[in-house]
C-alpha cells in the first residue's frame, strides 16, 4: 500500500500533519508531501482528512 495525496482536493489545512504519529507528512510551500520511508500506512490521516484528499492505495 502507498499513501496518495489528491492535490486537487487538498486545501493545505495541515490537520493531517499534526495527527501523523510518524511525522511523515509535511506542508512545504503550501503543498502537502508524504515521506514514504516514514509512512507506516496506519490510515489515521485518511480518516481525519475533512475532504478525503488522502488515500491508501495499492501501488500499481
Amino acid at each position: 500500500m502507498v499513501l496518495k495525496i489528491d492535490k486537487n482536493k487538498c486545501l493545505s489545512c495541515a490537520g493531517c500533519v499534526s495527527i501523523c504519529p510518524k511525522d511523515a507528512l509535511t506542508l512545504k510551500n503550501m503543498v502537502l508531501e508524504v515521506d514514504e520511508n516514514k509512512c507506516i500506512e496506519c490510515a489515521i490521516c485518511t480518516r481525519f482528512c475533512p475532504v478525503r484528499a488522502l488515500r491508501l492505495t495499492t501501488n500499481l
Binding site: G15, S18, I19, C20, P21, D23, I44, R47, F48, C49, P50, V51
Partner: peptide
C-alpha cells in the same frame, strides 16, 4: 509531545 491523536483533534470544514 505536541502532535495530535484522533481523540485530541476534530475534522473541520
Amino acid at each position: 509531545p505536541s502532535g495530535n491523536t484522533p481523540n485530541t483533534i476534530e475534522s473541520g470544514y
